[in-house]
């Protein structure tokens, strides 16, 4: 069986939520917050929230969209914020820029809504990340499959979703290693096409394992 020179090292992640000093009670204040909050805050309310709410596969995308929907009752803006796909971004700066653009455009066109009070305030928080190696690694596809089958949600999320920001590529750790480590580019592509918005972490993992099993049968 094909073995990679550089093994895949399984890591897990845990996030502490740090409460920021900013909050928003209107769409205009949300825009100010988006412009000035830390990168860790944008990460927390988009990438990280996707991991912690992975079981919601209908209509939940990020905290900003959810707040706009439930607390300001602006369905159209909520939809525009919800469709921003974190897979399209390899930097927080680019994601922040698009979030700001969407809210600013809305506030310009619907200026009468910009200052309306929300039902509840939005509190900007930040993620503090701690990673720890799980002490397991894989050199072959079999070992890789076994490792993935036993991962916690956080670890799977770390390698499959938040990894884009780390590797600065439109891919994930699994696909990256399958292509570079084992030379399985088609499999890597298929894995990268698993939809993280319409799957839970468990169903995404099941799809990934099925793709690996199909590849193993070929060999």
């Amino acid at each position: 069986m094909n073995a990679a020179e550089t093994p895949f090292e399984f890591v897990t992640v845990s996030y502490l939520t740090r409460i920021g000093n900013q909050s928003a009670g209107t769409l205009a204040e949300l825009l100010t917050g988006l412009e000035h909050c830390s990168d860790a805050s944008i990460f927390h309310h988009t990438f990280q929230t996707l991991g912690s709410h992975h079981f919601l596969t209908e209509g939940f995308s990020n905290d900003f969209a959810q707040w706009v929907l439930s607390d300001t009752n602006r369905n159209d803006l909520a939809e525009q914020l919800a469709v921003l796909d974190v897979r399209d971004y390899v930097s927080i700066a680019a994601l922040r820029s698009d979030l700001c653009r969407v809210v600013a455009d809305y506030c310009t066109v619907h200026s009468h809504f910009a200052g309306q009070s929300a039902l509840e305030r939005f509190y900007f928080c930040e993620s503090v990340e701690v990673t720890v190696p799980l002490g397991r690694n894989a050199r072959t596809l079999d070992e890789f499959r076994d490792g993935i089958a036993h991962l916690s949600h956080s670890s799977f999320y770390f390698h499959f979703i938040s990894s884009r920001l780390r590797v600065q590529l439109r891919t994930n750790d699994f696909s990256h290693w399958l292509a570079d480590g084992l030379g399985l580019r088609t499999l890597a592509d298929s894995v990268n096409h698993i939809d993280i918005y319409t799957n839970t972490l468990d169903s995404a993992r099941s799809k990934l394992l099925r793709l690996i099993d199909r590849e193993r049968r070929k060999t």
Binding site: T12, S14, V130, V132, P133, L134, G135, H150, L151, S152, H153, S154, S155
Partner: peptide, 15 residues
């Protein structure tokens, strides 16, 4: 919760 979650707790506690 699954064995993975418990393994994760042990990994975080290890240091």
């Amino acid at each position: 919760l699954g064995a993975g979650e418990i393994e994760e707790l042990r990994a975080l506690a290890s240091p």
